[in-house]
Design a protein around this nucleic acid. Structure first.
Length: 468
RNA sequence: GCCCCCAUCGUCUAGUGGCCUAGGACACCACCCUUUCAAGGUGGCGGCACGGGUUCGAAUCCCGUUGGGGGUGCCA
């Protein structure tokens, strides 16, 4: 494939939609594969919405995905709203050559004439020869016949022009609409391939007609399937969790996110879905993208994330957890943080974490003077057997060799004298030390805590009485 | 209403007329391992929406039905 000019055109909404992220990835790969260019265009015809922080949010999100603004393949950002004059003059050109006409009909006029709320424009002003003027919109004169949209993903689709209304390109106040602005910008940026969401498909024949009216060759189109929620509705900002930033903040790692996004509508070669980015860049092809909507499955994303976390080098994992650990420290003023201790505990965390945000909650008990108790579990577990067991463990721990394997054997043997198997036997001990019944392996943290503190915690739980 | 798209396990998908008694991944279940919870290992459950064609042969091609989705703004 020759050098492509693709464009990624998000609208500035204050957050980066996962669907946009997937589009960005597809476009980026296509640009890289062809040695072409990735053009970023911030699309909003209203200048007021092109806020710097929103643009920065887009740039940050792209950088997180390693779609880098400093890469030679990256061009932009361009602002649609900065190009309004070109949009307007292009529209005027359409009027000059007779490809568009002025219209002073209001919605009410139309409904009054046709008797239908939902039907399209009835072409009333088509041949009235109206000139430009206040309150007069400019409409594109859709010709007779039909258009074929050739789509890399969907094949050739024919649209009858008769079913297409004479759409507005310039408002009554003279400002351009998205439909034409988009076409003019694509022409000025010399875009050769448009990859965008399926929701734009019905607009494509209209845009293609405009390209032709301008005497230009339309780009190649590729409409990727929409992302849907469990109700199979298009993923929406209002209803669903869709902000890439939110996933990032909740501890999803970039590689997992990127890999998962790529599998929505496309599958890597072979049986594995988790594959290196380089392989995806090498193998991706629009021809292999499916055309049916894809459900954005949080569970599968979580599984991918756990997989990627487990694959990290230990030191990388420790570093990656830091933002969440720092937040935990801020939230727990009484902490006694030790980086060395965390590094010793990290393998236990890495083995079972779903997200990086799970890290603090797994090891907090070694960083606090007292564990945070699961009160329900405490009430349930603390019966006479548990008390007797704890008393025996305290006595044995006073002299036992302070080493994980020995402590384990000690607890198991004492448990046996109370008729408990090794699982149940460690329950009260785990509860005393960690505050919970589930968590990382127990005896290694005991070694870290030391004899004195371990026994103090065991005594504290033994002394505890239900309040009611 | 009109236009367009889509339809394989619960989910994401492989499959482009014989390699399909339909393969993988996530989820779920069981077992193994085990220091609780995980992780890991092994196995299992589970699908071509329906009806007609075409063909020696159809998940695959055609038509219809049904279901789902998108669009239909002087929104982007």
């Amino acid at each position: 494939m020759s050098s492509l000019r693709v464009r990624f055109a998000p609208s500035p909404t204050g957050m980066f939609h996962v669907g946009s992220a997937r589009s960005a990835l597809f476009n980026w790969i296509l640009a890289k594969q062809s040695g072409g260019t990735f053009v970023l265009r911030v699309e909003d015809t209203d200048d007021a919405r092109n806020q710097p922080e929103w643009t920065q949010g887009i740039l940050d999100a792209l950088a997180w995905l390693e779609v880098s603004p400093t890469d030679p393949a990256f061009e932009g950002p361009y602002y649609q709203s900065a190009n309004v004059e070109a949009h307007v003059s292009a529209a005027h050109r359409l009027a000059d050559i007779g490809a568009a006409y002025y219209c002073d009909c209001t919605r009410d006029d139309l409904v009054a004439r046709t008797g239908h709320e939902k039907h399209g424009y009835d072409r009333y002003c088509r041949d009235r020869g109206l000139t430009a003027g206040p309150g007069r919109a400019l409409r594109f004169r859709v010709p007779e016949g039909s258009s074929v949209v050739s789509d890399l993903i969907r094949g050739d689709v024919e649209f009858e022009h008769a079913s297409m209304e004479d759409f507005v390109v310039l408002r009554g106040n003279g400002s351009p609409l998205f439909l034409i602005a988009n076409v003019v910008d694509d022409i000025t940026h010399r875009i050769t391939l448009v990859v965008r969401g399926e929701e734009h498909f019905p607009n494509t024949p209209k845009q293609q007609l405009m390209w032709q009216a301008f005497g230009e060759t339309p780009p190649v189109w590729a409409h990727v399937p929409v992302l849907v929620n469990e109700a199979r509705k298009k993923l929406s900002k209002r209803r669903d969790k869709v902000a890439l930033e939110q996933f990032r903040d909740e501890g999803f790692v970039m590689d997992a996110m990127r890999n998962y996004l790529m599998t929505l509508g496309w599958t890597p070669k072979g049986d594995a879905e988790i594959v290196p980015w380089a392989d995806m860049v090498r193998d991706f092809s629009l021809a292999d993208v499916v055309s049916s909507p894809a459900f954005f499955d949080l569970k599968k994303l979580a599984a991918f994330n756990g997989d990627y976390i487990r694959a990290m080098a230990p030191a990388d994992f420790v570093a990656a957890c830091e933002p969440w650990l720092a937040a935990w420290r801020d939230a727990h003023p009484g902490h006694r943080w030790s980086q060395d201790t965390f590094i010793r505990m990290a393998p236990f965390v890495q083995e079972r974490a779903v997200t990086l945000a799970d890290a603090p909650g797994t090891i907090d008990f070694v960083m606090l003077d007292e564990p945070v108790f699961d009160t329900e579990a405490r009430t349930k577990v603390m019966n006479d057997t548990a008390r007797a067991l704890l008393a025996d463990v305290i006595a044995a721990f006073a002299t036992a060799e302070w080493e994980a394997e020995t402590l384990k054997t000690t607890v198991e043997e004492i448990g046996a004298t109370h008729g408990l198997k090794r699982g149940p036997a460690q329950g009260p001990v785990r509860l005393a030390v960690t505050g919970r019944l589930v968590g990382p392996p127990l005896y290694e943290p005991l070694v870290i805590l030391g004899r004195g503190e371990t026994i103090a915690r065991l005594r504290a739980l033994l002394a505890w009485e239900p309040t009611e």
